[in-house]
Design a protein around this nucleic acid. Sequence first.
DNA 1: GCCAACGTTGGC
DNA 2: GCCAACGTTGGC
Length: 150
Amino acid sequence: MNYWLMKSEPNTYSINDLKQEQKTVWDGVRNYQARNYLRQMQEGDLAFFYHSNAKPPGIVGMMKVIKTLVNDPTQFESSSAYYDPNSTEENPRWQTVIVEFVSVFEEIISLETLKENLTGDDLLVVKKGSRLSVIPVKNEVAEKILKMTK
DNA sequence: GCCAACGTTGGC
DNA sequence: GCCAACGTTGGC
C-alpha cells in the first residue's frame, strides 16, 4: 500500500465536498508528471487531501483509491475547461483514479506545520515553488504526518 | 493583488 | 533542439 498527496483548491472541490459525495473521479489533472503518478496508483492506496490556495493551505483529510486507470471524462467534453481536443476515445491521453472519502482531520495540518516537521526531500509540497498536484509520499513520511493529527 | 517558480508553446 | 514568451500555480 502506498501513500500519496493530492491537491485541490477548496473553492473548486474541498474535503467537505468529498465527504458529501463519498467518492469522486479525480478529474482535471493536465500535467504529465502528475498523470504518471495517477497511473501508478493501486486500489487501496491512501491519499492525503491537500487544500491549496486556501487559508491556511494544508492537509485536511484522507481518501482511499478505489478504482485505477479511469479515463478522465472531462477530456472529451468540449464544454469542459479540461477538454483536450487532441485526446481520442481510441487513444485517451488522461487517466485518473476514483477516490473514496476516509476522514476529515479534526484540525488542518497547515503548510506551516508541515514545514516545521519535514524537509522538501520528505515531502515535495514543502518545497518552494512546487506545483505538482499529485505527489508520492514515502511510508515513513506518511507516518510522521499521521502523528501530527489529533 | 503580487510575483516567483514552473510548465508549455511555438518560432527558428 | 533551443529558448523566449507566455500562461498557470499557489504562497504570501
